[in-house]
């Protein structure tokens, strides 16, 4: 066979592999780690899953900020458990990501160097206790809307991780709503605290569902791979439609003068989102971007000697075991 013929056969083979792959996705079959996949699929999944994992562990920080100051023992325990759940989500999302041939250390390196992104919402400060309610209710609420469709995404390890993540997130959202409810049923001061938290978290929560469709660069390909099932704007509308009545139940006001129920569309109309603010925070200039990164990088650096010790100890134990086996 000539070189040109060989090349042709190679190209045909990879074309047919790709065809089979696309067919499997169209049939709603799961792609597993050892299956053939196009390089772009692998890279896109590493990007999205790691971004999700990073968001979980950076997301521990704003809420972790209130663990020592939680107002009651019951709230303290619930908050600790919630932040621990987030660490757990980080853990199995990193593991899912590792099945695509990248190590956790490499993923951390990408986060710490600023190469990888995490959800921008965590760059806002948690300034009062009510923020623990607002984050659970709004931020976890928006996260669920984003994540439920991922339970059926094409990449098996990601889809399976998401089933567990979503169950826990929905519990967190109810917990957050319940914190808001206690505040809204409390004193005037508590109710004001709840309103203030809604004022500060509402718009960032809407932004959390991503740039508007015309600005979203990954949507089309991600829809094809079922890494995304609805567009950002569709998800945002769903979030607003679901959340506004909940604010009504709480008796607090969504900070959008243009918010209005539209009989014709069966949806809420809402005001203009400040996309300049969104891009400013995404590009690293939000209120807490530097604090969050310093906290992550700091914890990692301070932990170096601990991780080194664990490796060295394991190595010593292994040698000991081998030596005693030899002696026998």
């Amino acid at each position: 066979m000539s070189e040109a013929q060989l090349k042709n056969t190679g190209a045909e083979r990879s074309r047919s592999l790709e065809e089979i792959f696309e067919q499997r996705i169209a049939n709603d079959e799961k792609i597993e780690p050892k299956d053939w996949m196009p390089e772009k699929y692998r890279k896109t999944h590493i990007r999205q899953i790691s971004q999700h994992a990073h968001s979980e562990i950076v997301g521990m920080l704003p809420e972790g900020n209130w663990i020592t100051r939680a107002p009651s023992l019951r709230r303290k325990v619930a908050l600790l458990a919630k932040v621990q759940d987030e660490a757990g989500h980080g853990l199995y999302l990193y593991s899912a990501c590792e099945t695509l041939g990248i190590s956790r250390d490499e993923l951390y390196e990408q986060l710490h160097s600023g190469k990888a992104k995490y959800s921008s919402i965590f760059n806002y400060p948690t300034v009062t206790w009510a923020d623990m309610g607002a984050i659970g209710w709004l931020v976890d609420g928006a996260a669920i809307i984003n994540q439920v469709p991922l339970c059926n995404t094409s990449y098996g390890p990601y889809a399976r991780a998401m089933i567990r993540v979503c169950k826990e997130e929905s519990f967190h959202q109810r917990q957050g709503f319940e914190i808001m409810m206690s505040l809204c049923n409390g004193t005037e001061e508590q109710k004001q605290m709840a309103q203030d938290a809604l004022n500060r978290w509402w718009w960032p929560s809407l932004m959390m569902l991503g740039p508007t469709d015309s600005e979203s660069v990954h949507t089309e390909q991600s829809m094809k791979w079922k890494l995304k099932r609805k567009t950002n704007d569709e998800l945002r509308q769903q979030f607003i439609d679901q959340t506004v009545p909940q604010a009504d139940i709480l008796g607090i006001t969504v900070p959008d003068p243009d918010l209005k129920w539209n009989e014709k569309t069966g949806h809420y109309d809402f005001g203009e989102i400040d996309w300049d603010e969104f891009w400013q925070v995404v590009k690293g200039h939000g209120p807490c971007n530097k604090e969050r990164m310093n906290a992550r990088v700091g914890a990692w650096k301070r932990g170096t000697w601990v991780r080194d010790a664990a490796m060295s100890y394991a190595e010593k134990q292994k040698i000991k075991k081998e030596n005693s086996a030899k002696a026998v």
């Binding site: 562990i57 521990m60 920080l61 972790g64 663990i67 020592t68 023992l73 019951r74 303290k76 325990v77 600790l80 458990a81 932040v83 621990q84 660490a87 757990g88 980080g90 853990l91 990193y94 906290a295 700091g298 914890a299 990692w300 301070r302 932990g303 170096t304 601990v306 991780r307």
Partner: peptide, 29 residues
Amino acid sequence: LGELCGHGPSLETDIACTNISLDLFGQTR
């Protein structure tokens, strides 16, 4: 232990220390 939640040397140790903290608060209650 609760002060350290989110700041541990690794995710695994972070989760474990939080777990101990949770147990202790449960006993406290």
